[in-house]
């Protein structure tokens, strides 16, 4: 059995926390891979201005935009793959105005866009792959005046 495991998952289990009022808490979360995970994030866009773009491909996905306040609370959730998953998130669009591009492929993906208050909490949650996951996130778009977040992994949180 191939061991593409730990280093790949850890390096792509991407947790972004940007902005002063945006908070991400991760407690008691287990990401397990016992078989094959091929995770590939391709980023060619630039962060240089408005509307946001959020793309997610995967088993468990949450997307939220914040102009006032948003709350995401994930507690005691199991995300399990025992088969073969091919997850592809492609973005070639540019975000206009004061935007952000969030592009993610994987088993569990959470995206929060907006520079106002947000709270994201993930607790007591297991993300488990005992099958095969091939996840590719490709971004060639440009986020003007903001940021580009592009991730392929078993668990991706973009905030």
């Amino acid at each position: 059995m191939k061991r593409i495991v730990s280093l790949g998952i850890l390096s792509t289990m991407t947790i972004y926390a940007l902005g002063g009022f945006n908070e991400t808490k991760v407690n008691e979360v287990n990401v397990k891979n016992t078989n094959i995970a091929t995770l590939d994030a391709k980023q060619e866009g630039t962060a240089s201005s408005g509307a946001s773009i959020q793309n997610e491909a995967g088993l468990f996905n949450i997307q939220q935009s914040t102009s006032v306040k948003s709350v995401i609370d994930v507690d005691n959730v199991d995300v399990i793959n025992t088969g073969d998953i091919h997850a592809i998130a492609e973005n070639s669009g540019d975000a206009s105005g004061v935007g952000v591009i969030q592009n993610a492929a994987g088993l569990a993906n959470i995206q929060v866009a907006g520079a106002v208050a947000s709270e994201t909490t993930v607790e007591n949650t297991d993300v488990t792959n005992s099958g095969t996951v091939r996840a590719t996130a490709t971004n060639t778009g440009n986020a003007n005046s903001a940021s580009v977040q592009n991730a392929a992994g078993l668990l991706n949180i973009q905030n």
Partner: peptide
């Protein structure tokens, strides 16, 4: 080239909302 796109088993797309998910399995 804006907004939210989701392809998957479980997708929640929202704005300025409270989202609480507990004791749930997605497989």
């Amino acid at each position: 080239n804006k907004g939210k796109k989701c392809a998957g088993v479980f997708c929640v797309q929202a704005d300025d909302s409270d989202i609480e998910i507990s004791d749930t399995t997605v497989s």
